[in-house]
C-alpha cells in the first residue's frame, strides 16, 4: 500500500478506536444510569434510593395480583426470582399486563419497602408464536405433569 494511504488508513483506525474508547469509558462510568430500572434484588440490597423517583422492573409473581373492589388500586409483587418487591398502583394497567409477565414500574420506594408506582409499563419478551402453538405447548406441559 502507498505510504500516504497507509498513513490515512492508520488515521481512520485511530478515529474509530478513539471514539470507541471514549464512548466505552463514558458508558462504563454511567453504567448505572443507563439501566432503565432496578431489579428487585438490587432494591433488596439497598442500592435503590428511598423517596426518589426510580423505576423498578421484573416479573409479576403468579397469584400475587390483588385488586381493590371499589377503586382502581392494584397491589402485586414483582420478582426477579432472587428478591420480591411489593408494588401498589392506582390506574389503568396496559393490555399486556399479566401474572408471570414482565413489567417496568415508575414510582417511589417508601420507607416500609412498598413501591408506590405512578406508571406501569408492560415489558414484552422476544418470543413470538401463533396461539395454536401456545395451546399445544400448554397441553403437552399439562400431560407431562404427573
Amino acid at each position: 500500500m502507498h505510504p500516504v494511504r497507509r498513513q490515512r488508513l492508520f488515521i481512520v483506525l485511530l478515529i474509530i478506536a478513539g471514539a470507541g474508547l471514549a464512548v466505552g469509558l463514558a458508558s462504563y462510568a454511567l453504567r448505572e444510569n443507563i439501566n432503565l430500572f432496578y431489579p428487585p434484588a438490587e432494591i433488596a440490597e439497598g442500592k435503590a434510593p428511598v423517596g426518589k423517583r426510580i423505576r423498578a422492573g421484573g416479573m409479576v409473581l403468579a397469584g400475587s395480583v390483588q385488586r381493590q373492589p371499589e377503586s382502581l388500586t392494584v397491589r402485586f409483587v414483582v420478582t426477579d426470582y432472587q428478591a420480591e418487591l411489593p408494588v401498589e398502583y392506582t390506574g389503568i394497567l396496559p393490555d399486556l399486563f399479566a401474572e408471570g409477565e414482565g413489567v417496568v414500574a415508575t414510582g417511589v420506594l417508601t420507607e416500609d419497602g412498598v413501591f408506590q408506582a405512578s406508571e406501569v409499563l408492560a415489558k414484552h419478551d422476544e418470543t413470538y408464536m401463533p396461539p395454536e402453538v401456545q395451546h399445544a405447548l400448554d397441553r403437552s406441559a399439562e400431560q407431562a405433569r404427573p
Binding site: 439501566n35 432503565l36 419478551d125 422476544e126 418470543t127 413470538y128
Partner: peptide, 19 residues
C-alpha cells in the same frame, strides 16, 4: 443494560425465538 425493549428475536448464534 436493563431496558424496556425486548432482546433480539433473530439470533445468529442460536435458534430464533419466533415461530
Amino acid at each position: 443494560w436493563y431496558s424496556l425493549h425486548q432482546p433480539a428475536t433473530i439470533k445468529f448464534t442460536s435458534e430464533s425465538t419466533m415461530h
